[in-house]
Design a protein around this nucleic acid. Structure first.
Lengths: 339, 339
DNA sequence: GAAGCTGCTGTAAGCGGTTACATCCGGCGC
DNA sequence: GCGCCGGATGTAACCGCTTACAGCAGCTTC
């Protein structure tokens, strides 16, 4: 059995209150006493018990993250961003992920009770009401990239529409009209928003997106590869492809290469996400930069604010994106990036 | 204030013990009583407090992960692997990452006390002794990818040497002798082991690795790009490049492309990790497959075993790797993978 | 009809801390 | 010499739950 505060107190010949004071730098303790306690504590390898501390202070120094089962890098990157912010404050991160349905999400939410001081939730399936059902009403919450930006909670979203709008507008402004759209899975909120952004750009240019030029993928390289082959069959062929993420765009690039279609001369290609590899494929990929860790980081910062000031008003933020023009779309880049 | 077990008990006209029994499916409770309590609990939105539960049962249903500040995908992927396994058991994950030095790691370890039932630790800087200093001695621990496989703890490592050996042997067996080695940073354990594996393959083939053919990178695409340019300056040029990870290999590929060096005809290239993109670059990259999520998953499974059976003996496991031959190294692949 | 079950429920003692409040004590002002 | 003050420390009541044990009713069983 690990030693407790009582062991230390007994051994040092003081009361547990004094030991507690030493470990919390609170109140006044004589320097000699403090030293003696420190020494005994080290000798007994005393480490305060987190659960006990939490129980009596009602503070955990922990924030919880509840995520669905996410595709690939996203999970990882967002966690990384959150973690970095959390670490900066010396707090901890309780993660609950890979939830496939509402029941699981609900269970995860409930399990957070008494373990966290605030919560970051990403739940495409659950609406604000159901959330409230499963949470202590006073718990600060930030919704991350959720479909309905449920008014009562803080929320942070990526500007999916804005990014997709920018790419599409760019392609349209370079004369492309037959643009193949390789979308993500339609049950996915980001995928829908990106598609919407593309359509809006068409509308703004007084053009329309031909339905047969729209093919659904699942965000994997493989699905991008397949979608590109499918689009190449069309007559007349599209002159550009816009994939809803870089992985699919890269899959498409490999399909085009195999089919002997030159990029960008015969086919412009653009992706979305600006994953690290995007600038190293051939040709380097035009895409939309969106910092997923930053999304997580911002959520964490917002949550800390909300924890500090429980009464503060709820906010809804949109994380801006940036169009990154590289060679794959055939246009000269605006900025000075190596071409 | 959220409601407690007492509120439920009072409202349902029973004692707290009975409420507790209902929430733990333990002991015998009359069906009518159970229903009444369930109903009151739902009405009051009662959710058991985790800290209190932990304090009295000494069980947390949580495993802790302590990681250093990791480069790129690794962090994320390993967490993902762990999380999936943890989720399967309905447990939780307490993550503490981004630790840059020993003091931070130590603090993180201590903070886990009373919050977790077991720990996965990745600490290149800390040896087994220092670990023991900062942990309750009875806490089950699994060391992940740590330099010294410190005998007293369970450990899981990737077979870095084996993988690097296989790649190098493969290149050597195809006649390459001047093989440029783009290594990772030498303070990194994986980087050192991979380099060692390469050297061993040279030795086994009765050859030696020329020192001027060895250039250090930092695992980033950019450093691979730079290293490749450096190696191209040499006279005579190497005929093959082996980068210690895929990111650097891809950086190297882009450098070779820019320099007009054909791959694999003029220069064979191989990487390490088999990141998803590796098969979609041009030409597809020969590499070593190592499943990082699997590394995490295995660590989690091992930890669960150790938690179940505290007395069980410590084990040291090595995660096998697999050579994946694609076009970039010029050899025909052994397996049927599309070429 | 007493003793012994069986099934259900309550009492209370922890779990390991924090903290409001009480206590003790030496020094100080008057 | 006495009351007061303030620093150092101790006492004990929580925090919200689990669980060993006790208690109590209603039935058997002989």
């Amino acid at each position: 059995m690990a030693s407790t505060i009582r062991d230390v107190a007994r051994e040092a010949g003081v009361s547990i209150a004094t030991v507690s004071r030493v470990f919390n730098n609170s109140g006044l303790v004589h320097e000699d006493t403090r030293r003696r306690i420190d020494e005994v504590a080290k000798r007994l390898r005393y480490i305060p018990n987190g659960a006990a501390r939490t129980l009596s202070t009602r503070r955990t120094q922990t924030i919880g993250v509840v995520l669905p089962d996410l595709y690939g890098e996203f999970f990882s990157e967002v966690i990384r961003g959150i973690d970095q912010e959390v670490q900066r404050s010396g707090w901890h991160l309780l993660v609950s992920s890979s939830h496939n349905d509402r029941a699981e999400i609900e269970a995860a939410l409930r399990a957070m009770r008494g373990r966290v001081d605030g919560l970051i939730v990403m739940s495409p399936d659950l609406d604000a009401h159901e959330l409230a059902q499963n949470l202590p009403e006073t718990l600060p919450v930030v919704l991350l990239n959720c479909a309905g930006d449920g008014g009562v909670y803080n929320s942070i979203n990526m500007d999916n529409r804005g990014g997709a709008y920018a790419v599409t507008e760019h392609l349209l402004s370079h004369g492309h009209r037959r643009i193949g759209l390789i979308t993500g899975p339609m049950r996915n909120h980001d995928a829908r928003e990106r598609l919407r952004g593309a359509h809006e750009a068409f509308a703004a240019a007084g053009a329309t997106a031909a339905p047969e030029l729209q093919v659904a993928g699942d965000f994997s390289e493989q699905s991008g590869h397949r979608a590109a082959l499918e689009l190449l069959e069309l007559e007349p062929r599209p002159t550009a492809l816009f994939a809803a993420n870089d992985s699919m765009a890269i899959g498409a690039l490999s399909a085009l290469r195999e089919a002997g279609v030159r990029v960008p001369e015969e086919m412009a290609v653009a992706g979305y996400d600006d994953i690290p590899i995007a600038r190293y494929v051939s040709p380097p990929l035009t895409t939309v930069r969106v910092s997923i860790p930053e999304l997580g980081g911002q959520a964490a910062r917002r949550l800390f604010e909300a924890i500090r000031d429980t009464k503060g008003e709820r906010r809804h933020e949109l994380l801006p994106t940036e169009l990154v023009v590289r060679r794959s779309c055939g246009a000269r880049p605006g900025s000075g990036e190596a071409w």
